Amino acid sequence: MDLSSEQLDDLRELASSRHVSADVALRARIVWWSAEGRRRKDIAELAGVVPVTVDRCKARYAARGLAGLEEKRRGGPRDQVPPQTRGRVIALTKMSPPAESGLSHWSTRTLADHLRRREGISVSWHYVARIWREENLKPHRSDTFKISKDPAFADKVADVIGLYLAPPGGAVVLSIDEKTQIQALDRTQPVLPVTFAATEKRTHDYIRHGTTNLFAALNVTTGEVLGECRPNRNAVNFLAFLKKAVKPHAGKDIHVVLDNLSTHTTPEVKAWLSKNPHVHFHFTPVGSSWLNQVEIWFGILTRQSIRRGTFSSVNVLIKQIRDYIDSWNENAKPFTWTATAGEVLAKVRLVQTNMKKLVRNNSK
Rank of each mutant, 00 (worst) to 15 (best):
L358T: 09
L345N: 00
F241M: 06
C229L: 01
V160K: 08
Q293D: 14
L174R: 06
L261N: 06
A15V: 00
A47Y: 10
Q84P: 01
V24I: 15
S122V: 11
L301Q: 12
G75P: 03
E134T: 06
E343G: 01
A166Q: 14
L242P: 09
L66C: 13
L214C: 09
H209A: 05
S124C: 08
R12L: 10
W33L: 15
N237L: 03
R56W: 07
A28D: 10
V194N: 11
G342M: 05
R303W: 01
A217M: 12
T203Y: 15
R18A: 08
V256R: 03
A216S: 15
A129I: 00
L69V: 05
T85R: 03
T221G: 11
A339Y: 07
N361V: 09
T222Q: 05
P248Y: 06
D159T: 03
L242M: 13
T53I: 02
L165A: 04
A67M: 01
K156T: 01
G170A: 10
S122T: 13
V24F: 12
N329L: 03
P277R: 14
E70Y: 09
K149D: 03
L26K: 15
I30M: 13
W125Y: 13
L258P: 07
A171S: 15
V50F: 10
P82Q: 05
